[in-house]
Design a protein around this nucleic acid. Structure first.
Lengths: 193, 193
DNA sequence: TTGACGAGTAAACAGGCGTCTACTACTTTT
DNA sequence: AAAAGTAGTAGACGCCTGTTTACTCGTCAA
């Protein structure tokens, strides 16, 4: 496979610092989400971005820093945390059910879950799980012990991702999305309230 | 660091095929449990076993095969699955609570959970999660949809391990072991019955 | 005592990784 | 038009990985 260079795409402006930076960031995001930090190589990112590999470290310093910036630009999960409080268990249940049935899901969670075992970025992952999942969830809970209840819910959410990756569509155990969501709603209610 | 060899331990019989094999297996088990498949190197295993690195592939063929044999000799989690059926949620809750509070837990689960993202052994992990956790759990559940209910419980169990690894002792959210176990019992009851 | 077998060893193999250096060539300033 | 600055490039760096080859030498049978 020949090296990919910016000059292979002559229709674009050939020297644009900010644009190149964005291309790298945009290429790295989905790769990290799909494969996890360790299984994404600098050469993969360079190829996906259509950029010379040396430019990645030129703009981001190191792989770890690029990953940090990818995390920083990702939001929380949209549409799940926002909405009426009493329907939060239901929304979480539907999110996890979708995840188990179809493998869909926000890139945030995929990135975090798949990269959780890499010691090099342990602190980045921990802080991001805290700020993107645990803390927003906790803030929406009534009553005492909000932290531990949010933790249990978080464990379930992340574990569901692992299970889906292991078993594929069969992770849902043959149930359809709605039945599964009903069942999960009960479970989330049990740990959130 | 000098290469470790069997001859450094002259008190042992110097040429014992079966004994050497066991040494490798016994050294590899805890390493895989603690670090996961990918982060354990052949050289680590050789050093821990006090054995020349070439002997590992001589006796096991490849790293993957060694890992398969480590999995094969590990049991299920002891003391959790066995016992009265109606106390199963309680026992699971106490197991997960211990895991979150003290980081303790059976090497089976640690090995599986920490190695789940390695594509090279994906099938081994899947089959082992199935045979060591999912299926025994399912078999102990009454009523319909046993598979999906066991899956949800499994997701929670594995997710708790991930959370513990990320947050350390703080994963328990400041709650003591018994209070956490009480809370988790409710959750496990919600997904198991 | 001699021969063969095989457990154990040292060293290297090929390939992949993140990173870095020296260079080219385009663009802008003077 | 010449000079300066910088985006982009090619290639190599050192390190680590799992695996393999060629060899030594202890052990046991004839």
């Amino acid at each position: 496979m020949p090296e990919v260079t910016l000059h292979d795409r002559p229709e674009l402006p050939r020297r644009d610092k900010e644009r190149t930076r964005r291309r790298i960031l945009d290429a790295a995001g989905p790769l990290f989400a799909e494969l996890g930090y360790e299984r994404v190589t600098m050469r993969m990112i360079a190829a996906a971005a259509g950029v010379n590999i040396a430019l990645i470290n030129r703009y981001f310093g190191a792989k770890r820093e690029l990953f940090a910036q990818v995390l920083a630009q990702q939001g929380r999960f949209p549409g799940v945390l926002d909405g009426p409080r009493d329907e939060l268990p239901r929304r979480l249940a539907e999110y996890v059910a979708d995840r188990l049935c179809s493998g869909a899901g926000s890139p945030v969670l995929a990135t975090l879950s798949r990269s959780a075992e890499a010691p090099e970025i342990h602190d980045l992952i921990r802080d991001r799980v805290e700020s993107a999942i645990l803390e927003p969830l906790r803030a929406r809970l009534p009553g005492p012990d909000t932290r531990v209840r949010a933790s249990v819910a978080t464990a379930l959410i992340m574990g569901a991702g692992t299970l889906r990756r292991l078993f594929g569509p069969e992770a849902a155990g043959g149930q359809d999305r709605d039945a599964l969501a009903d069942r999960l709603t009960v479970v989330f209610r049990a740990c959130l309230s």
